[in-house]
Amino acid sequence: MSTPHFILTIRCQDAVGIVAAVASALAAADAFITESSHYGDEETGLFFMRTVFRPTGAHFQSRDDFLTALAPVRQRFGMDLNLHRRDRRMKVLIAVSKPGHCLNHLLHQWQSGELPIDVVGVLSNHRDHQRLTEWYGIPFHFLPMGADKPEQEAALFAVFEQTGAELLVLARYMQVLSDDLCQKLAGRAINIHHSFLPSFKGAKPYHQAHARGVKVVGATAHYVTKDLDEGPIIEQETERVAHNQSAQTLARIGKDIESVVLTRAVRWHAEHRVMLNGLRTVVFY
């Protein structure tokens, strides 16, 4: 069996000596660092770090061993410190409505081993993608929208907890989550939408954009907050379009970008590369 690798993430107030202290603590625990990135935000005074390492000695092997070794450094700098095994796949629940392009791309990437996640379920307010979901051998949860939205959201959150999900991916889930649910899922829910906002809201945004003669289309993946489509941005992409392309062509290009951008955001979150920095994110590519 190959030696397990660990991913260490740190967030704290910036100070002199953090990198040296972490490196020294890992060296004392016979850890071999294979990758390390850090960033100090001069505006917020916060420090962020992501380090990948593997054990080389006999005394420090498990996650608990290294947490013990890092405890003095953690206490000294008041760190928000997390340690994950790199080979552990994050449990992900996907929510979708009728548009299925993002769901298709996520499931294909998952099945082909390109995404370091375990899809524990797909839930929807429509049955359009039940056959596809079950073809992949994934549980499908049908949660139709009725008169009682709080009841439907309670059922959604119950599925999230019962499946052991660590991340909710809104893969074109065309429902606005309540403030209460957004709070419960803070930092654990990712959404995707076109990048025209705040312009071209509502139905057929690409047709609206075509009517206005836009020169680029794109997509934004972000964490879900109570402020609709305004959460901390994880990833964005754009593509230039021409005057002779139809609204249908713009929509097709936009859907392709949405699928890729959402998958990138899910991958980076699952690899613990994304750290919240107020209304922004730090992403260690």
Rank of each mutant, 00 (worst) to 15 (best):
A28H: 10
A28K: 13
A28G: 09
A28N: 09
A28D: 11
A28E: 13
A29Y: 05
A29E: 02
A29P: 05
A29D: 05
A29T: 05
D30R: 04
D30G: 00
A31Q: 06
A31M: 07
F32Q: 15
I33C: 07
I33M: 11
I33D: 04
T34V: 15
T34W: 09
T34C: 15
T34G: 15
E35C: 10
S36K: 02
S36Y: 01
S37D: 11
S37R: 10
S37I: 03
S37E: 12
S37N: 11
H38G: 01
H38F: 01
H38E: 12
Y39N: 00
Y39M: 00
Y39D: 00
Y39A: 00
G40D: 01
G40M: 00
G40S: 12
G40K: 01
G40F: 00
G40N: 03
D41E: 08
D41W: 02
D41P: 01
D41C: 06
D41A: 07
D41Y: 04
D41L: 02
D41T: 02
D41H: 02
E42M: 11
E42V: 09
E42K: 09
E43M: 01
E43A: 06
E43N: 03
E43T: 00
E43K: 01
E43Y: 00
T44P: 03
T44L: 05
T44V: 04
T44G: 03
T44S: 15
T44C: 06
T44H: 03
G45F: 04
G45K: 03
G45W: 02
G45E: 02
G45T: 01
L46Y: 15
L46S: 12
L46V: 11
F47E: 05
F47Y: 12
F47I: 07
F47S: 04
F47K: 04
F47L: 06
F48V: 01
F48L: 02
F48A: 03
F48I: 02
F48Y: 14
M49T: 01
M49P: 00
M49S: 11
M49E: 11
R50P: 08
R50F: 08
R50K: 12
R50G: 09
T51E: 05
T51L: 07
T51F: 00
V52F: 08
V52K: 14
V52P: 14
V52L: 11
F53D: 07
F53N: 06
F53E: 08
F53W: 05
F53Q: 06
F53G: 04
F53T: 07
F53M: 07
R54P: 09
R54T: 15
R54C: 14
P55I: 02
T56G: 10
T56R: 13
T56H: 08
T56N: 08
G57S: 03
A58I: 09
A58F: 09
A58R: 10
H59P: 07
H59S: 14
H59T: 14
H59L: 14
H59Q: 14
H59E: 15
H59A: 15
H59M: 12
H59D: 15
H59R: 14
H59I: 12
F60I: 08
F60M: 09
F60C: 12
F60E: 10
F60A: 10
Q61H: 12
Q61K: 14
Q61W: 11
Q61F: 11
Q61T: 11
Q61N: 13
